[in-house]
Design a protein around this nucleic acid. Structure first.
Lengths: 148, 148
DNA sequence: AGGCTATAGATCAATAAAAGTCAAACAAAG
DNA sequence: CTTTGTTTGACTTTTATTGATCTATAGCCT
């Protein structure tokens, strides 16, 4: 795991963690020079790794005095409507597992929580109908979200 | 007796046992070359032998800089002993919930994880025998422990 | 103000480098 | 002989990297 994109990602993350306001302002070309890569590679990393999905917000400006500002957003909490929108009402086990992975990628649930839920839904596949499964997922997410 | 799949399995296991963190990162194509087999054979072995059921956790990425990461679930004696001691093989749902609370109090699992597990065991009370319930609890703990 | 120019980020397409999938052929066990 | 597990290779999908070209911005100069 030592490709360029990962190096850039870590470089930015370390800059971010050194700030106390969860925000950092950079210059794309300077970064590219420092990290010996094409400037567009920086854009690639920003657009694939620093997305809203993953909890970041990126702004930039071109031209003289151009910059790239990266903000780490506070972790979101799942509410009722969002829990309901996670899967369709007739979802298969595979779709439920995909939804769980999606929630993990969006950092709404942790890796351990994802593993736990995935294990339950896989192991209990045969004793539920799709409707029961979806209901269980929704209620489980809410039960978890309301835990302190 | 020692078919290719077995050879590959042993090869990975020996790599794993040489690490002290129970984790190894490999490249599928390199392995295939070294072991003189089709790359898809590696995938086959991973999906049949290195499952959560058997105590492994596999993640991978494609593309440039792709990799396969295999984690052997650390045998967290604490978890297993606690679970085994607190929950008798014929435990009721109430006893399982008490065990979960105990694990939470001892900070082996988080509040969210406890809420999640408690919800599952309550909601699924009617579709499991006590023995199944205890097994599910133990395996769920192990599945969770393997995530990071 | 209006236009020129240098600057700096955005976009897109081409290329390459992984890993995943799937089905068919094959083997071993019962 | 059937069933279950193994092996292979052709094809698919994902991810990364680069470079050429496009677009926005600020500063200057009439």
């Amino acid at each position: 795991m030592d490709n360029l994109a990962d190096v850039i990602e870590k470089w930015i993350l370390s800059k971010l963690s050194r700030q106390q306001d969860e925000m950092v302002v950079l210059r794309r070309n300077e970064m590219a020079t420092e990290l010996s890569c094409a400037p567009s590679q920086i854009s690639y990393v920003l657009s694939t790794r620093f997305t809203v999905e993953r909890g970041f917000f990126v702004e930039s400006r071109r031209g003289l005095g151009g910059f790239v500002r990266i903000v780490r957003l506070p972790v979101r909490r799942l509410n009722q409507e969002e829990a309901a929108r996670v899967v369709s009402p007739d979802a298969s086990v595979g779709e439920v597992l995909a939804a769980i992975k999606h929630l993990k990628d969006r950092q709404i649930i942790s890796g351990r929580e994802a593993a736990l839920m995935s294990y339950f839904f896989s192991a209990l596949e045969s004793c539920m109908t799709p409707a029961e499964r979806v209901m269980l997922l929704r209620k489980a997410l809410l039960a978890m979200a309301s835990a302190h």
